[in-house]
Amino acid sequence: MEPEVKQDAGASEYNAENVNVTISTDDSGTLANYSSTDASSEQWRQIGEKISEFLSDLPDYLTDFFGEYKRPIVTVGLIFGAIVAVKLLLAVLDAINDIPLLSPLFELVGMGYTAWFVYRYLWKASNRQELGRDFNVLKEQVLGKFD
């Protein structure tokens, strides 16, 4: 079944110029039949079936998982979103802070607002009571009224 390679009798050394190669196809055989019951192909077929079954049931698994763990997933998502928002805010503030005249201007505005807030709400006792009432009204609006 193997092809025969014949070399000229006159070529005593291996030279590319002196080599003649003859391929004989007289005893050509038939191709071996491929057996589909081979153990490795059967294992691959079973693995493929399991993967296909898992992928077809994946929406049901995800629905059950999300239904069971909805609250923790939402909590983790909110925490992740808050972290991203804080990092984005800090990046924007850092970029604004790099502008030469804006940083001292923002510091002056902040100090001015702090001075106004102290004068308006914290200097006198009556104003502190007004701030407490305003804070309680805001708390009731946000959280609801407690009995």
Results as ranks from 00 to 15, higher is better:
Lys124Val: 09
Pro100Asp: 14
Ala9Trp: 10
Asn15Asp: 15
Trp116Ile: 15
Phe80Asp: 00
Leu143Glu: 10
Leu31Trp: 09
Leu62His: 03
Glu42Ala: 10
Lys139Met: 05
Asn136Ile: 13
Pro3Ala: 03
Tyr61Glu: 09
Lys145Phe: 03
Ser12Tyr: 12
Ala85Gly: 00
Glu2Gly: 02
Glu2Met: 05
Tyr113Ala: 10
Val137Asp: 08
Glu140Ser: 07
Asp27Ile: 02
Thr25Val: 12
Gly29Arg: 09
Glu68Ala: 06
Ile99Met: 04
Thr25Asn: 11
Leu90Arg: 11
Val142Cys: 04
Pro59Tyr: 05
Ser52Ala: 13
Gly81Pro: 01
Pro104Asp: 04
Val137Glu: 09
Phe135Cys: 12
Leu89Val: 05
Val92Glu: 00
Leu102Ser: 01
Val84Ser: 03
Val76Ser: 06
Phe117Cys: 14
Leu89Thr: 07
Met111Val: 11
Gln141Pro: 00
Leu90Cys: 07
Trp44Asn: 13
Lys145Thr: 14
Val86Tyr: 04
Ser36Arg: 09
Leu55Pro: 00
Asp38Gly: 00
Pro100Trp: 08
Leu62Met: 10
Tyr121Asp: 08
Leu102Asp: 00
Gly81Asp: 10
Ile83Glu: 10
Leu131Phe: 02
Ser52Thr: 14
Leu138Lys: 04
Arg128Phe: 03
Leu62Gln: 14
Gly10Pro: 04
Thr25Glu: 14
Asn20Glu: 15
Asp38Met: 03
Leu78Ala: 08
Asp98Lys: 06
Phe146Lys: 12
Ile51Tyr: 03
Lys6Val: 15
Ile47Arg: 07
Asn18Ala: 14
Val76Pro: 00
Leu101Asn: 00
Phe106Tyr: 05
Phe54Ala: 14
Thr22Gly: 04
Tyr119Val: 12
Ser40Ala: 11
Gly48Phe: 03
Glu13Asp: 15
Met1Ala: 13
Lys50Asp: 12
Gly110Asn: 12
Asn15Ala: 15
Asn15Thr: 15
Thr37Arg: 05
Gly77His: 05
Ile96Trp: 03
Tyr69Lys: 07
Tyr61Asp: 00
Ala125Asp: 14
Tyr113His: 04
Ala125Asn: 08
Ala91Glu: 08
Tyr69His: 12
Arg71Ile: 15
Ser41Thr: 13
Leu122Ala: 06
Leu93Asp: 01
Phe135Asn: 07
Val92Thr: 10
Ala91Ser: 13
Ala32Asn: 12
Tyr14Met: 14
Tyr34Pro: 02
Val142Tyr: 00
Ile96Cys: 05
Val92Lys: 05
Glu2His: 01
Gln7Glu: 15
Leu105Lys: 07
Gly77Ser: 11
Tyr119Glu: 12
Ala95Asn: 02
Tyr69Pro: 02
Asn20Ala: 15
Val19Tyr: 03
Glu13Trp: 10
Asp26Thr: 11
Asp64Lys: 06
Tyr34Trp: 07
Val76Phe: 00
Asp64Leu: 13
Ala85His: 01
Leu108Arg: 09
Ala91Val: 05
Asn18His: 03
Thr30Ile: 10
Gly132Thr: 08
Ile73Trp: 01
Glu4Gln: 10
Glu130Lys: 07
Glu130His: 00
Leu88Val: 11
Asp147Phe: 04
Leu62Tyr: 06
Leu131Lys: 02
Gly132Asn: 02
Ser40Cys: 06
Ser41His: 09
Val84Ala: 08
Thr75Asn: 04
Leu122Gln: 06
Val21Ile: 15
Asn18Asp: 15
Leu62Ala: 10
Tyr69Asn: 12
Asp27Ala: 07
Gly67Ala: 11
Glu4Ala: 08
Ala115Thr: 12
Val84Met: 09
Leu101Val: 11
